[in-house]
């Protein structure tokens, strides 16, 4: 086989794979613009991916049937707080592990790395008991606080900081800056890539959080989008077009954030050496 033919074959294969992966979103996107009756009717044919008549009716329906804006706000608030506070806390922790000398540092680092493999499902019940004890159920706080400190984020910051030239910090210290000043004036501005990576990764994992919010919230006023779409799904009448419109609006913020931060994200992933 000639090399041209081989390349063509590889690209065709990749293209088919790409189409396969994008098809659910394309199906959802097309469906979100179709009248409800056509969504299932055309599901088995190519028209599933093509809205013949475009209509925003499904999107309007979502807003009239549920308080979508409220859920969106809840999700944005919870995720914004987790990402923002998480960046601060985890970056400082990663820096302390990478650069400060303190007793028990290596042991603590091993513990943090060990914690990475424990899924939320494993600690959900004791954690639920704990937050109930504090009377935090059905609040924003209970959906934010447990997720600020994150072992994986600390690990990403740690690996990035440990690879930064030490002289920069030493120069800052000699120039008269203390530890925090050095961190905020010298380290942080030179670590945008890892901040972007951690922000995106945190956002992606938390945006779809379902189990924990389901356990600790009961009122709509504090519930995030993943719970809302589950409820919406079971809300009669079953309207697939509406569900798709809801789904599209839920995916959109993630896509936007990824597209905006993508250049830094790629650099950050390359710099920290993590793999997807």
């Amino acid at each position: 086989m000639t090399s041209r033919a081989a390349i063509a074959l590889v690209y065709t294969g990749l293209l088919l794979m790409g189409l396969l992966f994008i098809s659910p979103i394309a199906f959802m996107l097309a469906g979100s613009f179709k009248p409800d009756a056509r969504v299932l009717m055309e599901a088995g044919e190519w028209r599933a991916f093509w809205p013949a008549e475009m209509s925003l009716q499904n999107y309007r329906d979502v807003f009239t049937r549920v308080d979508f804006a409220r859920f969106l706000w809840n999700s944005l608030l919870i995720n914004g707080a987790i990402v923002g506070l998480g960046l601060l806390v985890n970056a400082l922790a990663g820096y302390a592990f990478a650069r400060l000398a303190w007793r028990g540092r290596d042991l603590m680092l091993s513990l943090v790395l060990a914690v990475m493999i424990i899924p939320i499902e494993a600690i959900a019940v004791p954690l639920f008991y704990l937050v109930s004890l504090f009377g935090w159920r059905d609040t924003y706080l209970v959906q934010i606080l447990p997720f600020i400190a994150n072992a994986f984020s600390i690990y990403l910051f740690y690996t990035y900081f440990i690879g930064m030239p030490r002289e920069l910090e030493e120069a800052a210290r000699i120039d008269g800056a203390g530890v925090l000043r050095t961190f905020f004036s010298v380290i942080l501005p030179n670590a945008k890539a890892v901040f972007a990576s951690v922000a995106i990764l945190t956002f992606l994992t938390q945006w779809g959080a379902f189990l924990w919010p389901l356990m600790v919230t009961s009122s709509e006023s504090v519930r995030p989008l993943p719970l809302a779409i589950a409820t919406f799904h079971s809300l009669p009448p079953l309207q697939w077009g509406d569900i798709f419109a809801f789904g599209m609006m839920m995916v959109l913020p993630v896509l936007l954030i990824f597209l905006v931060f993508q250049p830094w994200f790629v650099r950050g992933v390359a710099a920290t050496g993590i793999k997807g």
């Binding site: 030239p165 002289e167 120069a171 000699i174 203390g178 030179n190």
Partner: peptide, 20 residues
């Protein structure tokens, strides 16, 4: 004394200029 309180200045081999 910590470095910042020694009233010294240092030139590093790789200069260690603040890139940003």
């Amino acid at each position: 004394l910590s470095p910042q309180r020694r009233d010294i200045a240092m030139v590093f081999q790789n200069y260690a200029l603040y890139p940003h």
